[in-house]
Amino acid sequence: MSEPFLSIRDLGRAFGGLKAVDGVSADIARGELVGLIGPNGAGKTTLFNLISGFTPPSSGEVHFKGRRIDGLKPDEIARAGIGRTFQNLRIFPNMSVFDNVSVGAIGAERIGMLSAFTGRRGVSERISQRGLAALQAVKLIDDAEELAANISYGKRKYLEIARALAMQPDLLILDEPAAGLNETETKALADFIASLHADGMTIILVEHDMKLVMSICRRIIVLASGRKIADGTPAEVKADPAVLEAYLGGDDA
């Protein structure tokens, strides 16, 4: 294996004087499920935004499937095969559940204006199938025609993941998917993410809920104040004094 699947090299981003992400490096192999944890404000979301092109890096490089992707626009990175969700749930509220997921497939298929006149053949057919498959995966098929604004919060969380799945990405990055869910819902979500991983999806999971990450990830990266302070198995990370200090010294344990 010469070229890693995703390679983050000395990545940094400063906002004014604040180094939100500070020289982070990590290689992630195809098929891994990696947990990314750290106290509030550690730079996890910023790191995701750097990978997905929403924030341009101040320094460093990102390589994905052998191609350098830092500097590309977010839609180009998405089409390169990186799907993401957002920390503060972002769905399309005035569109139906199915139409929401269709957008993921539409982006990946890169349709043009002419597709509007070709009816249900070809690309439109593929989009329908991708959309339906994604809804099936998250068990939202019965809500397909419901307005996204009208389904429950928990379902909307799954909808956002389904929309990213409809892109059929090679890498899925999830930013605090369990935020706002209760314990049973979180458990169910953990099982779902584990099953995606078992089906071969490469996933990076940012999560506040330590239990969730520890239970399903075999590798955990810890960020604190923008720096990577640990990278290893849950057992290794839990025993790491630097991690203990970051969490005890931070405002939340």
Binding site: S52, F54, K73, P74, D75, A78, R79, G83, R84, F86, R90, I91, F92, P93, N94, M95, D99, S102, V103, G104, A105, I106, G107, A108, R110, I111, G112, M113, S115, A116, F117, V123, S124, I127, R163, A164, M167
Partner: peptide, 29 residues
């Protein structure tokens, strides 16, 4: 009508709803 009631129209709606989010789906906004 065909343009607005098609998957192409859905891409346009995504633009209206949240254009950054549409970006993240690979839509060339």
């Amino acid at each position: 009508h065909r343009l607005s009631h098609s998957y192409y129209g859905n891409a346009l709606r995504a633009l209206r709803e949240d254009d950054q989010c549409a970006d993240a789906m690979g839509i060339d906004t």
